[in-house]
Each structure stands twice: as C-alpha cells, then as structure tokens.
C-alpha cells in the first residue's frame, strides 16, 4: 500500500523541486572526517548544502549519516574521545575552530531527535525553554513566541487548551511535533532532523512529513532517514552515504530515477541495506 502512495509522491516531487529558491550554500563540508577514537565514522566528506531546501541523507545503518548530521551542531562533542578533521563551514566559519561559541551555534542550528524527547515539564515550558535561555523573560512576548512556534509546527489547535499540562501526557506524534515547535522557538536557520519519524506510526509520520513540506520555505532542513520513500517524498536533494563515505549527492529526482553510482542504485533498488 505504501508503495502505491510512494510512487505517486515520487511522481510529484518535481513540484517543489527546482523552483525559484536561491541556490546559496548554507553549510559546506570540506574533506570533513569524524573519528570515534580510532574509528573514522565519517570519511572525508565534501558537500554543499543549499539554503532553504530539504536535504535528505540516506544509507544503511552505521553508514555515518547520523554522525554527519550531529557534526553540524557539534552534538558529537558529548561523546568522549571524538575528534574531527577537515572543515565544516557555516556562516563563513569552520565550526570546529577553537573560538566558536558552541552555544550560539546550537541556537542557530536546531535539532529534532529520533525519539521525541520532550522535557517532563508543561507544554508551554517546553517551547519556552529556548527563548528563555536567550533571555526572553517577558510573559507576553513568550506566549507569542510559543503560540507562533506551535502554529508553525501545526500542533497549536491540538494543544492550545492545555498548555500547562505535562508534555509527557501527549501522544508520540504530538510529542515529536512539540519537539519541532521547541526547536523552531529558538528561531534557527537550519533544522536538523535525525530520523524524526522512526518512533511514530504511519499517521503521525504523515503529519510530520506534511509539516516538513511547510517548513521548507523558511528553513534549511537536513533530514536523516531510514526510509527511502520518505526521502523521496520530502526532500529536494538526497545524499547517499555508505561506510562513512558520501557516495552520491544530488537532486532527489535524479538520484532516485537515474543514479550515477551503481552502489546507489543497488541500495535504492533494495539489493542491500
């Protein structure tokens, strides 16, 4: 059944493919490698991720796609004994430079995780967490930001009557959209999504995908996904990674219909992975 939907969608992805958006590069990786101890999880990746497009990263488990994603806001710093070589350029700076302010970086690059990770606080406090960090104290202003973010995440109507309720009481799909709202509330330029629908049922997944479609007009979105149909449905560009190496990176339509690399073809036709 999903196959059918997928095929229809694939036919339509051109609709939002090459429209008039700028082709300005937002993030650029230059020979970027990331090591866990001695293990090279990402190998000399070079890619330019354009502004206000949806870029999907696909590949088999353990291919380094999540690691690459987490390198963009330096979440890998949390794991002991990681090191990076090469450059990851954002806003004209290599974000691995010594005097980079990681806190500002993460405020400008939002992230949504695999499993919805709402804080055990009220819905309002979850969304207001980021703005409060940045010093917004005014209650009025905060409510505006919260409402706007929840609207942007297409969840406002569902939660507007229970903003003070504990966020843990929501369904998984709602929690994930709340996480997106929370990420949007800090007004990031880039939104990183690490398999955002892997823990959700198909209905909730569809909602998130619709949301991504709406968000792509304002944000640069990079999404890691296990699900090739999802990549095909939502993304403008797709990167295929295998064993830490960026095998192929190009327009989604191109990559799914006529891949350059035989490895890519094998993967998307389901011969491995």
């Amino acid at each position: 059944m999903t196959e059918e939907i997928t095929m229809k969608k694939i036919d339509t992805f051109a609709e939002h493919g090459d429209d008039g958006a700028t082709n300005e590069t937002h993030i650029e990786a230059k020979d970027f490698s990331l090591f866990y101890g001695d293990f090279e999880a990402v190998r000399k990746v070079s890619m330019e991720i354009p502004k206000q497009k949806v870029t999907a990263m696909i590949g088999p488990s353990g291919c380094g796609k999540s690691t690459l994603l987490r390198s963009i806001n330096r979440m890998n710093d949390l794991i002991p004994s990681t090191s990076a070589t090469g450059e990851m350029i954002f806003d004209g700076h290599n974000i691995y430079n010594k005097n980079i302010d990681v806190v500002t970086l993460r405020a400008r690059v939002g992230m949504v995780f695999q499993k919805p990770n709402v804080f055990p606080k009220s819905i309002f406090d979850n969304v207001a967490y980021g703005p409060r960090l940045q010093g917004t104290k005014n209650k009025q202003e905060l409510s505006e930001i919260v409402e706007q973010s929840l609207r942007n995440a297409a969840i406002w109507d569902e939660v507007k009557d229970r903003l003070t309720a504990n966020a843990l009481g929501m369904s998984g799909g709602q929690q994930q959209r709340l996480c997106i709202a929370r990420a949007l509330a800090i007004k990031p330029e880039i939104l990183l999504m690490d398999e955002p629908t892997s823990a959700l049922d198909p209905k909730a997944t569809a909602k998130i995908e619709d949301l991504i479609g709406e968000l792509r007009n304002n944000y640069t979105i990079i999404i890691v996904t296990h699900n090739m149909q999802q990549a095909a449905r939502v993304s403008d560009l797709t990167a295929f990674m295998y064993e830490g190496v960026l095998v192929e990176f190009g327009k989604t339509k191109q990559l799914f219909t006529n891949p350059d690399n035989p490895q890519t073809e094998n993967y998307i036709t389901g011969r491995f992975g």
Binding site: F90, D91, H93, I95, N97, K98, N99, I100, D101, T104, L105, A107, R108, Q134, I186, K187, P188, E189, N218
Partner: peptide
C-alpha cells in the same frame, strides 16, 4: 529571516578567553 542570524558564531578573543 530571524534576529539570530546576525549573532556571530565567533566569539571575540577576549570573550572567548573570558568564556574559557
């Protein structure tokens, strides 16, 4: 697009030193 985009990623040397 957002007020944040002009917040520089780079801390000045002094700020960086202070931060560290």
């Amino acid at each position: 697009m957002s007020a944040k985009s002009n917040q520089s990623l780079i801390m000045s040397d002094a700020a960086s030193r202070r931060h560290r």
